[in-house]
Write a protein that binds this DNA or RNA. Structure first.
Lengths: 226, 226
DNA sequence: CTGACGCAATAGTAATACTATCGTTGTTTG
DNA sequence: CAAACAACGATAGTATTACTATTGCGTCAG
C-alpha cells in the first residue's frame, strides 16, 4: 500500500502554494528537470513557461523569483530528508546504528519514490548537489534566514547532531561535523563527476564510497579513546 | 627586507595579463574590494569601471567575463597558498608537524601581507569563502577544467594529501579528506557569520576554533589504531 | 446570475553581459 | 625625427535577463 505524500512547507517559500493546483505541480515538476538539464544560471522562467505551455507571468504567480524557487526546492528536499531520517532511525535500539543509518540517508542519493509521483528525486538530488549551496551563498542570506527559509536544513543538521551526542555526549562540534559531512557528500560526488583529481570517490560507486568515507570519518572523529 | 611578489598565473585565465599594467592592477585591486562589498551576483564590470574611472570595454580587455575574473582571483589565492604552504612546511622535521602547519595555513584566513601591496588579502579571503565554489559549481566546469583553470587548487589539495600520506601511508581517502577540510573551513566561517545554528564555530574566534575542529578531525581520521 | 478565481496574453522596464568601432594618446623603433 | 604600434577612452549598440502591470476570458460555486 503506497501513500502519496505532500510535504507542508513554510508559506513564505512561495507566493501561491504549488501543491494547490495542477499548474503549480507542473511548475515544480519541470523546474526540477530543467534545473538538472541546464544548471541554475541558464535556467529561466521564460524557458520553463515555454516548456509547460504557460506564461512567465503565471510562473511568477507561484514563485516571486528564481532564487525563491531554488529555496523552495531545497526546503522540499530537506523536509523529505527529515521524514526519511525519522523512518531510518525509528525502532533501532543502538545509538551507533541509529547514527550509521542517519549518515547513510544524508550521504546517499535519493532514489525514485512512488509516494511523490510528480517529483523526479534523482534529478532533484543532482540539483541539490550542484546548486543548493547557492541558496545560502547569496547577498540576501541574512534576510532570508530571518524569514525562516533554511529551517528544514537546520532541523536535519540538529537531528543528526543529536544522534552524535547520543553516541558521544562530550564531542564538542557535533553540528559543525554534520554540516561538514552533508556538504562534503555533495561535493565529493560533484568532484567525482567534474574534477576527479580532488577526490578518491569514483563515478562508478560514488554513493557507496562517499558513505564509507564519511561514516568512517564521523565514527573516528567522535570515538572516545579507549 | 621585503620583496614584492608577482605570481605567474596561467595565461588562459586572462585576456591580457593584469600584472602588466597599472590599469590591470587597479582592476584586480578594486574587483576584490567590490566583490567583497557587493557579492558576486551584484558585482558588475560597469560598476567596477565607474569606480576606477575607466570603461567597461577596458575591463573586458583584461578579462573576457565576470566568471573568468572570479577564476583568476581564486587561482591567485591558491597560487599564493602554494607559496605559503612551501614556507610553512620547509625545515620542519616531523611529518606530523608539517601536516599540522599545512592545515593551519589552509584553514586560517590570510592576513595582510606587505609583499602584495595592491591585494587586500583579508577581503580576498572573504571573497574566496563566499564565492569561490561558484568558480566550479558552473555549467562550464568541464570545459574550464580541460583548459587548466583549476590547476592551482588541485596542486594545493595534492600537496596536503601527500603530507597526510607521510603520516599514514595507508589512509585510503587523503585527497577527499583535504578537499573536505578546505571547503569546510570556508563553510564554517560563513555559517558562523550568517547561519550560526549550523556550526559551533563562533564569530569571535572563528579562525582558531575552525582550525582546532578540523585539525582534530584530520588527525583522528588518519590515526592508526594503536 | 454573479462574482471570485485561475490563468493566458500582451506589453513593457531597467539592468545585465558582452561586442564593435574609432580616435587619441604616449612610447618604442627604425 | 617620423612611422608604427599598443594602450586606452569614448560611444554606441545587441540580445537576454529578471521582473511588473494590466486586461480579459472561461469556469464553477453560492
Amino acid at each position: 500500500m503506497s501513500h502519496r505524500i505532500v510535504l507542508q512547507l513554510d508559506e513564505k517559500l512561495f507566493v501561491k502554494d504549488p501543491s494547490s493546483s495542477e499548474l503549480g505541480e507542473s511548475i515544480v515538476e519541470h523546474a526540477i528537470l530543467m534545473l538538472d538539464e541546464l544548471g541554475y544560471e541558464a535556467f529561466t522562467f521564460r524557458k520553463l513557461a515555454e516548456r509547460i505551455g504557460t506564461t512567465e507571468a503565471s510562473v511568477y504567480r507561484y514563485f516571486k523569483s528564481k532564487h525563491r524557487l531554488l529555496l523552495y526546492l531545497t526546503a522540499w528536499y530537506w523536509s523529505w530528508m527529515e521524514y526519511r531520517l525519522h523512518l531510518a532511525t525509528a525502532n533501532v535500539a543502538s545509538p551507533e546504528e541509529r547514527l550509521r543509518g542517519a549518515l547513510r540517508e544524508v550521504t546517499q542519493r535519493i532514489r525514485k519514490d512512488e509516494s511523490t509521483p510528480r517529483i523526479d528525486e534523482e534529478a532533484l538530488y543532482r540539483v541539490v548537489v550542484a546548486d543548493s549551496s547557492k541558496a545560502y551563498l547569496h547577498a540576501d542570506v541574512d534576510a532570508e534566514n530571518r524569514e525562516g527559509m533554511f529551517r528544514s536544513y537546520k532541523r536535519v543538521c540538529r537531528t543528526v547532531a543529536d544522534l552524535i551526542l547520543e553516541v558521544n555526549p562530550t564531542y564538542p562540534w557535533p553540528v559543525a561535523l554534520v554540516s561538514t559531512v552533508i556538504e562534503s557528500s555533495h561535493m565529493q560526488k560533484y568532484f567525482a563527476e567534474h574534477l576527479p583529481s580532488l577526490t578518491e570517490v569514483t563515478r562508478g560507486d560514488a554513493d557507496e564510497s562517499t558513505t564509507t568515507f564519511l561514516t568512517d570519518l564521523v565514527f573516528r572523529a567522535i570515538a572516545t579513546p579507549a
